[in-house]
Design a protein around this nucleic acid. Structure first.
Lengths: 318, 318
DNA sequence: TCCTTTTTGGCATAAATTTGCCAAAACTTA
DNA sequence: TAAGTTTTGGCAAATTTATGCCAAAAAGGA
């Protein structure tokens, strides 16, 4: 199942890197836009490493800061602070002998970066409110959707921590750069939904796939997955057509500035102007050329270029 | 005064024809859009013919049908029908020795066409409800804004009647095809209004003339005349500017399909696309070029061509 | 059916646009 | 302030578009 998510070609080069790093206990930094499947890559690395039988512990650093982050990572002793009713292990302890996955690492506040960096030096720490030195054996895989080097430049991320995490970099490209996998993904996600929701799996019209390939998926794979799930749940058709897609998705195709490049915009404007004028003048090509202020020969050239056919009809009234 | 209405060049070729037909009692068919001055041409022919001292009787066939048309043309005897209080002459009698001008002849219903055709054969008829044979000597000038030949094809106009009327054809072109006369027309119509309404004649800004030349005047000369009269009456300025023109006239210049030629339409679409994309990408020209799928050098070229200036600002979110 | 007029499409050339290249100018960073 | 990086605009060549010309095809009319 892993292959289809990442796409055949991209998958190949990533899997090469993954295979090489899995065996060695080096830290990995995975970069790529939100929703591209960074956690999945981390999971694959973990499952192909000697730590496969041990825990894979994900942490989203982006939503934690200050004491909460420390607590999450290091755990606390009973009575360490208000609410610490009993001792609790942090993620570091839970990931012992396994892998700790730190997502959105770029969002880690500077003060927490220091704490984290200290632990990465010898993997010794104590819980909050404790004296016992705890030593763990943990592999760190971190992920970010930002250019971490740039964050270092801006002073928002510690350079020393960066070099600790950035031993091996893996880049996961956005979905818009690997649209060849969309048909497969659609198939697999619908399969998954059919199993999950105990409904027959619908077919999908080619126009739908075509539309998917024309969209730029800012939310990446996650967005595609969510959309399909939504369509699946809200419809009982045995074939999904364009009109079954949610209107807020279809809306994107009515925004002419999203998808079209300059050539297309220009061509469409021209084509429309020619057709409108031709229609208004009842197919009279001489007059149309005159109104548009191009030569008749040019009009003929453009009619052919845009594959416009128009029969001359009766003269317009007035 | 006739010359300016028809335009110097067009006037010349029409006046040649007019001069030739005026002397001979042949029927004339005048074609041209509404408002082009067809009746004026008919009047000129009449005034230059041997019938100049006799009546010129216009009839608009378009608004009459059935009995009303017959009544209008042939008149009626007292008591012929309800309302026929006394004898009344029709247009044929009134135009005796003169000219009968039949406007919008294409709108004549088929049944009336038959009546009319019969009279054209020998110019003998009787009034409605009468027995007396009345013979007249009338020249027929008819006018239409339609392609009469096409009406014949469609079975809406009798072919035999067509050939009776279409002895000599005269075509009066629409105002949009002879815009060179617009300045002169404006001058003359304002002169006329100044005399009629006893107000000083205003000057006209060049921008106004320019605007007039860019409009396509569906209502032809009549529309220009009416507009100027309206402006004249509703304003006391000694110079007419663009802002003095009625809003319903100015409104036409906001309809993008009306006035613009192809180059303008294309340029505007391009310019808009570039500006929108540049704005969305916070002035990043490299990215803008990439999204629009043109080279950076081309983008620079077009920014200069369209005189677009844009400062780079902070990076857009996500 | 034949003749005349109008339209069409091939071709070549003129004109306009696109774009690579690069030196100079402008901007950024230590 | 100096060095490194990015942007800009001039220039030439490649590419694309516009359009005149004209023979052939199609359309229209008697």
């Amino acid at each position: 199942m892993h292959e289809f998510i990442l796409g055949a070609e991209v998958m190949h080069s990533i899997m090469q890197t993954v295979n090489q790093v899995a065996k060695h206990d080096v830290n990995v930094l995975i970069t790529g836009e939100s929703g591209t499947g960074k956690e999945l890559v981390a999971k694959i690395i973990h499952l192909q490493s000697p730590r496969a039988e041990n825990p894979f512990v994900p942490v989203n650093s982006g939503i934690l800061s200050g004491l909460m982050f420390e607590d999450k990572l290091f755990g606390h002793e009973k009575g360490a602070f208000t609410g610490a009713i009993c001792q609790e292990k942090g993620c570091f302890e839970m990931a012992d002998k396994g892998t700790l996955f730190l997502d959105e690492v770029s969002d880690l506040p500077l003060e927490n970066q220091i704490d984290f960096l200290r632990v990465l030096e010898d993997f010794c720490f104590h819980r909050i409110g404790g004296n016992e030195i705890i030593e763990v054996d943990v592999r760190i895989i971190s992920a970010t959707n930002k250019d971490l080097k740039n964050e270092v430049k801006k002073g928002l991320f510690r350079e020393d921590l960066f070099y600790r995490l950035h031993v091996v970099p893996i880049y996961v490209p956005p979905l818009r750069d690997r649209k060849n996998v969309i048909p497969k993904m659609v198939d697999r996600f619908l399969n998954q939904s059919a199993i999950n929701f105990k409904k027959p799996k619908p077919a999908v019209k080619p126009e739908v796939i075509d539309l998917f390939c024309r969209y730029d998926w800012p939310g990446n794979v996650r967005e595609l997955k969510n959309l399909l799930e939504r369509v699946f749940i809200l419809n009982d058709y045995d074939t999904i057509s364009v009109e079954h897609l949610p209107s807020d998705f279809l809306w994107h195709f009515k925004d002419p500035h999203r998808i079209k490049d300059l050539e297309e915009i220009r061509s469409e404007a021209e084509k429309k102007a020619i057709m409108d004028t031709l229609h208004r003048l009842a197919g009279d090509k001489e007059k149309t050329a005159k109104i548009l202020r191009i030569s008749p020969r040019t009009l003929r050239y453009k009619l052919q270029k845009y594959n416009i056919k128009y029969e001359r009809s009766s003269k317009p009234p007035i």
